[in-house]
Design a protein around this nucleic acid. Structure first.
Length: 485
RNA sequence: GCGGAAGUAGCUCAUUUGGUAGAGCGGUAGCCUUCCAAGCUUCAGGUAGCCGGUUCGAGCCCGGUCUUCCGCUCCA
């Protein structure tokens, strides 16, 4: 485990050193739990996103993709439950370190009091909550000598609100009531799909069962954000909401459970590093939920969530918008009658793109040592990123930077760069260039040497095996295209 | 959020009780022309995380703060 931790530290350093991940605003000492993707990270992330997008939309005829805005009408988050369920004032006991919801703490205390006193206290509580008077709430707790059940002390921190959602102001002109101007940065992309359900269903003439996919940023004001890019305050989700006939949700839940795990395996994650974890305690909207977990260097953690969300979201939006959000199902039931109007049920697949990125990198990172033929030790640090995901596919290297070799290399570069990402390098000894390519995870190198001028052949060198072979220069592009497909 | 540890050049680290900040690697430019890094030469790069205090003098001592890591707590 100590070794794993060490390896993970080294991976984090490696990510910075080779242009994968930088801490946000590092110039100003950084912003906690926010990270930037560098030149190689952005490309790897895009490749992962494209792979997911293709598997969802192109490979499923009944799934389409959208791109909803991050800003949404504030009522969306009232309907979804995010406003009410995640904005409660909290307080910590300094001795026991236990955290309480302030309203629960005071209500529990009120239960122990006589009728009139109890009513007076609850009334006071409501007034303070309505005014967001946190100082007043703390004073009330202290006046009432409310103690922690664990430590039995009345030694409390200040009352704080842990609001999950980031707020900002919408529009240039301040309203009389500041509440009117509040918009939230979405804490999940799913709601952008739900509010567009009818738009997509009607304009795309979609028939149930069908899905809507979306990738995009989401924002959560996490109390504790840790483990590098595993839990960030700004992150990217890849979600797909699959709309099904009520009663068939478990069937589809199981379908997506299988399908998604297989997809992860298809991009190179070994199946023994993946497992399911069923949720015992369900969220307010779900009737079944599980995580696909990956064994990160810091333990088994959620990579993707599969949730059966029932008709909760669509029903809530129907209620809050006072619009009918239903689907007319022309398919015939067992009695030969159309299923008719209903609110579809939803099965959600939701994977964290940043977590997937971290998964691929932690699988790819390796520190290797071996003994050379002459008996001396050699070593390298290599990112064995699957070729189809690697940021740069091919490095084109003239053995020396004269004798016409760079010209041949440049011509090959021009031939290939329209088809996949290439990198040209003529500085330093060839071995050193190979090591640099290993470190950034470029799977293939092609070296142009003096013999190339005679036989039009080049050496292709494979990152993972370090083996080399000789192929005609005219076949390089075709060969690489095969290897990355 | 609580407790613990850490922060010196891009990276890894020196600077042994407080006395003007150094190395290796890496980078740059050139030489060499060589199929698995570490040959030669050149150059660049740090107000020691930041702010304050003690002191004649602080990278080093003290306080605060920011960031990261570990443990706990939280996590729709």
């Amino acid at each position: 485990m100590a070794n794993d931790t060490n390896l993970f530290q080294n991976l984090i350093s490696h990510c910075k050193e080779y242009g994968y991940i930088f801490q946000s605003s590092e110039l100003y000492d950084g912003l906690s739990a926010v990270y930037d993707y560098g030149q190689n990270g952005a490309q790897l992330k895009k490749n992962l996103r494209d792979e997911w997008w293709k598997s969802m939309t192109q490979m499923h005829e009944n799934i389409v993709g959208i791109d909803a805005a991050i800003f949404m009408h504030p009522t969306v988050w009232k309907a979804s439950g995010h406003v009410d369920n995640f904005s409660d004032p909290m307080i910590d006991n300094k001795d026991s370190k236990k955290r309480y919801r302030v309203d629960h703490l005071i209500e529990a205390h009120a239960e122990t009091l006589a009728g009139p006193e109890k009513d007076a206290l609850l009334q006071q509580l409501d007034q303070l909550l309505a005014k967001d008077d946190y100082a007043g709430l703390k004073k009330l707790i202290e006046e009432q000598r409310i103690t922690c059940t664990v430590s039995k002390t009345c030694n409390w921190t200040d009352v704080r609100q842990f609001n999950l959602m980031f707020k900002t102001e919408f529009g240039a002109v301040a309203s009389e009531n500041p509440e009117d101007n509040i918009v939230y940065l979405r804490p999940e992309t799913a709601q952008g799909i739900f509010v567009n359900f009818l738009n997509v269903q009607k304009t795309g003439r979609m028939k149930i069962p069908f899905g809507i996919a979306q990738t995009g940023k989401a924002f959560r004001n996490e109390i504790v954000a840790r483990q590098f890019i595993f839990r960030m305050r700004e992150f990217e989700q890849m979600e797909m909401q699959f709309f099904v006939r009520p009663g068939t949700q478990m069937e589809w839940y199981n379908y997506w459970k299988e399908t998604r795990k297989k997809w992860h395996e298809s991009i190179g994650i070994p199946s023994e590093k993946l497992r399911y974890h069923n949720h015992i305690k369900l969220a307010h909207y779900a009737d079944a939920a599980l995580d696909i977990e990956f064994e990160f260097p810091f333990g088994w953690k959620e990579l993707e969530g599969i949730h059966s969300r029932t008709d909760f979201d669509l029903s809530q939006h129907a209620k809050y918008s006072r619009k009918k959000i239903q689907y007319f199902d022309n398919d015939l039931d067992e009695q030969g009658k159309p299923y008719g109007n209903y609110t579809p049920f939803v099965v959600e697949t939701s994977v964290g793109l940043d977590r997937l990125f971290l998964t691929i990198l932690s699988l790819s990172y390796a520190e290797e040592t071996w003994t050379k033929e002459d008996g001396t030790e050699d070593s390298r640090v290599v990112l064995k990123i699957p070729a189809k995901l690697a940021p740069t596919k091919l490095a084109i290297l003239p053995l020396v930077k004269k004798d016409g070799l760079p010209e041949i290399a440049r011509a090959l570069m021009d031939d290939c760069k329209g088809s996949f990402m290439c990198f040209y390098e003529e500085k330093d000894a060839i071995g050193k260039r190979y090591r640099r390519m290993d470190a950034v995870g470029t799977p293939f190198c092609v070296t142009i040497d003096h013999q190339t001028k005679e036989d039009n052949a080049v050496t292709i060198r494979y990152r993972d095996s370090m083996l080399q072979e000789r192929i005609p220069i005219s076949e390089v592009k075709k060969k690489i295209l095969e290897l990355i497909s």
